[in-house]
Amino acid sequence: MTATHHHGAPAAMPPSQSTPAWKLLLTLALAGALSGWLVVSVYKVTLPAVQKYAAEQVNAAVHEVLKAPARWDTLYLVGNTLTRTAPAKPDLADIPKAFVGFDASGRRLGVAVTAAEPGFQELLTLMIGFEPPTGTVIGFKVLDQKETPGLGDKIERDTAFGGQFAGRMAPLTGVKGRAGKPPSEVQTITGATISSRAVIRIINNAIAKWRPLLEAWDREGAR
């Protein structure tokens, strides 16, 4: 090629014999197979821990929003009706569920459901406990939120805000600057008005959606 054979000079000449295509394919195929195998192995190892954590989260949330029920039943929403039998779907996590909680004497305490709607900037997921006959809120818990740290995320940490909901009746309305009056007012958090209103909206919508379903379930159970 060039006459100058400088050892360290930037060699701009194209590689004289390029690697054959089958070799490139083989390299990438082997690398892909190896990485796929690694990912699947670690996924299998970590899956039980991940599922256990998710189940623990749900259990803790049901426990909290229904004020420590002695036990609870799980109802699955299939189509437009509730059923006690789990549908034969691969992933039960995606099916909407209602957790019906009872105290030690078998009296029904209320029902817990999860609901997700946009908050200030991302989907806000709550678990909501309420009494279906009256629409009275028992409590709520934030399962997932990406609200502004220090402002909107107070909906999760501000106990004064979270504490107001117990005993209030849906549909709730948010008020600013003064204490919320019974039966259905709650005071929004200063600096987190939008996130507070999102919580109120999600609770109202969830109760409006689940009440008729649960009433229908009660009628059929009574029949």
């Binding site: 590689p15 390029s18 690697t19 070799k23 490139l24 390299t27 990438l28 690398a31 892909g32 990485s35 690694l38 990912v39 670690v42 996924y43 190892v45 970590t46 821990a49 991940v50 954590y53």
Partner: peptide, 30 residues
């Protein structure tokens, strides 16, 4: 790793370990 596919191979290796780190973190510090 042949010169022509090195970037692809590197990214594949990196992506694999990122996925592993993600899964391990989710299982240990959810």
């Amino acid at each position: 790793i042949a010169h022509e596919v090195r970037i692809t191979a590197f990214i594949l290796i990196i992506a694999t370990f990122v996925t592993l780190a993600d899964m391990i973190l989710a299982a240990t510090f959810p």
